[in-house]
């Protein structure tokens, strides 16, 4: 029995052809998580400390993206953005844009919660020692805030990876789509290809959870050492 369908579901045509399957899900989840974080920090800062107009814009951006279903966001980026700007976008890129927007809005809230959970006593103590506002922010708020937001970020990473399952609706050959294709081509393997789909998401998701858990423990450990 050939296992072509299995490798098709895992890596697509890679390394000879275009990548696909689970590889796309992992790649998109990782890249959109990082890109989202890059956009999330300025968004969170604008929402926390921006002026009236910029703060309102950041809040509106975050709230609109957070309350739009991801599948609708995908349709916006894939079918409607090309109409508006007049350029065709390949499916993978529209999925990337949609997931980046989505993850930047969610992570902006996580970053904001992390930064505002730093006790005001810490900030006041730092100001009392004569540090400037930016010094306080860089040396006190950022390190503690990042540490506090690790659990939420880790669980968001897991949910972002799960959410990459939706991108198949715009025609990206990811794990879902390749599983559906495999099930369609050999109907007797339908059950097994669905099981492989579920197992692919579950195993990678658990690995991400585990990494998040380890990271959390480690960051808490350094905090303990510092406080002792």
């Amino acid at each position: 029995m050939s296992l072509d369908w299995l490798s098709f579901m895992m890596i697509g045509g890679w390394p000879d052809g275009p990548p696909g399957g689970l590889l796309i899900n992992i790649g998109l989840a990782v890249s959109c998580f990082l890109m989202g974080f890059i956009f999330a920090v300025p968004l969170a800062l604008l929402r926390m400390a921006g002026g009236r107009i910029s703060g309102f814009c950041a809040t509106a951006f975050i709230e609109v993206l957070r309350s739009t279903p991801l599948i609708l966001l995908l349709f916006w980026c894939h079918f409607l953005l090309p109409i508006i700007i007049g350029i065709n976008i390949p499916p993978l890129w529209s999925a990337f844009i949609a997931l980046t927007l989505y993850s930047s809005a969610y992570q902006a809230e996580i970053v904001r919660a992390g930064f505002s959970s730093v006790p005001s006593g810490e900030v006041e103590a730092a100001q009392a020692t004569g540090l400037s506002k930016s010094q306080v922010f860089i040396n006190i708020v950022i390190p503690q805030g990042l540490r506090r937001m690790t659990p939420a970020s880790a669980s968001f990473a897991v949910s972002l990876f799960k959410d990459t399952a939706v991108i198949y609706v715009v025609g990206v050959i990811d794990l879902m789509q390749s599983g559906l294709i495999a099930a369609e081509r050999n109907p007797n393997k339908m059950l097994i290809s669905y099981l492989v789909m579920a197992a692919g998401f579950a195993v990678v998701g658990m690995v991400i959870s585990l990494i998040g858990y380890k990271l959390e423990n480690r960051l808490n450990f350094t905090r303990k050492v510092v406080s002792e």
Partner: peptide, 23 residues
């Protein structure tokens, strides 16, 4: 809970629609 919280909602939807009647 440990397994199911890592499985996407779309998967459940497709599973119940296409596979469940088959089994």
């Amino acid at each position: 809970v440990g397994v199911a919280r890592h499985i996407p909602a779309v998967f459940w939807i497709l599973f119940f629609y296409f596979v469940f009647p088959e089994i």
